[in-house]
Amino acid sequence: MEIVVFYILAAVIVVFSVLTVTTQRILRSATYLLFVLFGTAGIYFQLNYSFLGAVQLTIYAGGIIVLYVFSILLTSPDGDKIATKLPKSKLFAGLVASLAGAVLCIFITLNHTFPVSRFVPGEIDMKTIGFALLGTEKYQYMLPFEAISVLLLACIIGGIMIARKRG
C-alpha cells in the first residue's frame, strides 16, 4: 500500500516538476508547482511528519502559491509568451548540464552506502515540537525561531516598502 502511494506521489512530483519548468505559460507553471507541493506534502505525511505536511500545505500551497498567482496576474497576463526565446544552444547546454547533474547525483546516491537506515514510524507530538521550538537548551531552537521571526518582520516591512506606490 505504502509503496503504491509512494509511486503515485513520486510520479506526481517528477511529472509536475518537469512540467513546471517546461511549460510556456507562467500561470500553468504556478499550477503545476502547486501539484508538486501537494506531492511533497504527501511525502511528509508518509514520513509521519504530519505537522510538517500541514505546514507545507498551509504556507506553501495556501500562502505562497496564492501570492504567485496574484503577482502573475498583476504583472504579465501574457506570461512567457512574449518572452525572448533562448538560443537553441543555450537550451541544449542547460538541458545537458541538468541531466548530467541529475544522473551524477543519482548515481552517487545509489552507489553510496549510507549507515544502516530504517524507517522508524511514529508521530512527533505537538508538545515535543512546541518545547523544542521554544526551549533554550541543546537541540532546542529558541534562537533560530526568534531570528526567523525577526527576519519575517523585516521582510514584511521590506516588502511593503519596496512594493508600495511612490507618491
Binding site: L9, A10, I13, V14, S17, V18, T20, V21, T22, I26, S29, A30, L33, V36, L37, I43, Y60, I64, Y68, S71, I72, T75, S76, G79, D80, A83, T84, L86, K90, L91, A93, G94, L95, A97, S98, L99, G101, A102, C105, I106, T109, L110
Partner: peptide, 30 residues
C-alpha cells in the same frame, strides 16, 4: 532521494531556462 534529485535538477534546469523572473522564482521553490 532519487525523487528529490529529479525535482532539484528540474528546478535547476528551470533556473537556467526560464526568462521570466517569476518562473525563475518558481524554479527556486522547486
Amino acid at each position: 532521494l532519487v525523487v528529490s534529485t529529479i525535482m532539484f535538477f528540474a528546478g535547476i534546469f528551470g533556473f537556467f531556462y526560464r526568462r521570466n523572473l517569476l518562473a525563475i522564482l518558481i524554479s527556486i521553490e522547486l
